[in-house]
Design a protein around this nucleic acid. Structure first.
Length: 326
DNA sequence: ATTACCGCCTGCTGGC
DNA sequence: TGCCAGCAGGCGGTAA
């Protein structure tokens, strides 16, 4: 399930190999992943052929290619989307949805493929609009190399290192409602802390609200809450300012550690542009580990229903809040 | 404005 | 063996 670290790994791969490339041809093999391009698949193709990729930018889990036409190829990986760079003679994946033939020196002939089993994700071409505040819209450019080291101390240094460079001060149409993410240098953390503390819903639900803070999904929400020793159903309004700041620090830390080892690959559904898995699964303390010992206290990890999915936590380190009587 | 829930998708697993 | 319910879950839409 691609969350911010996984999308950033993909962004870096695309930035490295497709910046400056030109789109030669586009083939839409399934209509569903381009459903958000309201003018239809033929229009999407027409807008892409002949344009050049100027930058690859990410905000939260949204990713886009800035095009020299003034538009953006906007992508969301959803649950199972992949953007792969492959030789044209590689066999088509079973769930290949869109193929983009590109020309560019760094590509060495490879084409870009959007592969998506469940089709929650998709591609569209939309206008690039100025940001309301005039600040960069997200993280772009050629970031430092993704470290290939596996294991080690979990990437404490990486948690403090640079994540990317600012993009142009533009956002694709329809992305303005997505908040800045924890790696964005223009995230207003004080304002976020104050806003978080006005929320009446649970702190996990708040972390997952992409309009408040973007990039956090179910995995990293559970991991950050474990680090902060908070149960996800604690009301966000009950956080102190230092408590909220500490929680955001844990969100940033766990995501930076995951990024440093290529992200989390739970099943084969998340891979980088070369098809390689990430290694952070071994860094997870609670997510997907029901019944196994809490790394901190040894109590068996608990799984609870949460909004038609699951939450994982330690029953000792993260006690449930007192049941609130209506 | 905030909050919560539903529907969208496919593949896999477990129970009967 | 086959069938089906349940599960994975991010996000847009909608209703309260």
């Amino acid at each position: 399930m691609p969350e911010l670290p996984e999308v950033e790994v993909v962004r870096r791969g695309l930035a490295r190999w497709t910046t400056g490339a030109r789109v030669e041809a586009v083939e839409v093999l399934h209509p569903r992943p381009v459903r958000r391009h309201v003018q239809g698949p033929a229009d999407l193709v027409a807008r892409l052929v002949g344009v050049r990729v100027d930058d690859v930018v990410r905000r939260g889990k949204f990713l886009w290619l800035e095009l020299d036409s003034g538009e953006a190829l906007l992508a969301h990986l959803g649950m199972s989307g992949q953007l792969l760079l492959e030789p044209p003679d590689a066999p088509d994946e079973k769930h290949l949805r869109v193929r983009l033939r590109l020309s560019g020196d760094a590509l060495e002939g490879r084409e870009l493929r959007f592969v998506d089993q469940r089709m929650f994700g998709g591609l569209s071409v939309v206008d690039l609009l100025p940001t309301p505040d005039g600040l960069p819209g997200g993280t772009g450019g050629l970031a430092p190399e993704v470290p290939t080291a596996v294991g080690g101390d979990g990437g404490t240094a990486a948690a403090r290192g640079p994540v990317g460079v600012p993009s142009s001060p533009r956002l694709p149409e329809g992305v303005a409602h997505i908040a800045r993410d924890p790696f964005d240098p223009h995230l207003d953390e004080a304002a976020l802390v104050d806003r978080l503390r006005t929320r009446r819903s649970g702190v996990k639900r708040s972390l997952l609200d992409q309009g408040l803070l973007s990039g956090v999904g179910n995995i990293y929400a559970d991991e950050a809450l474990w680090r902060a020793r908070l149960h996800g159903e604690r009301p966000a309004s009950g956080l102190t300012r230092p408590g909220a700041r500490a929680l955001l620090g844990h969100v940033r830390d766990v995501m930076a550690e995951a990024l440093a080892v290529g992200g989390t690959s739970f099943d084969s559904l998340y891979v980088d542009v070369n098809g390689a898995s990430g290694y952070f699964e071994r860094g997870l303390a609670v997510y997907g580990r029901e019944g196994r010992p809490c790394p901190r206290c040894g109590a068996p990890v608990r799984r609870e229903a949460f909004a038609n999915r699951s939450s994982h936590s330690c029953p000792v380190c993260q006690p449930r809040p007192r049941t609130v009587r209506a």
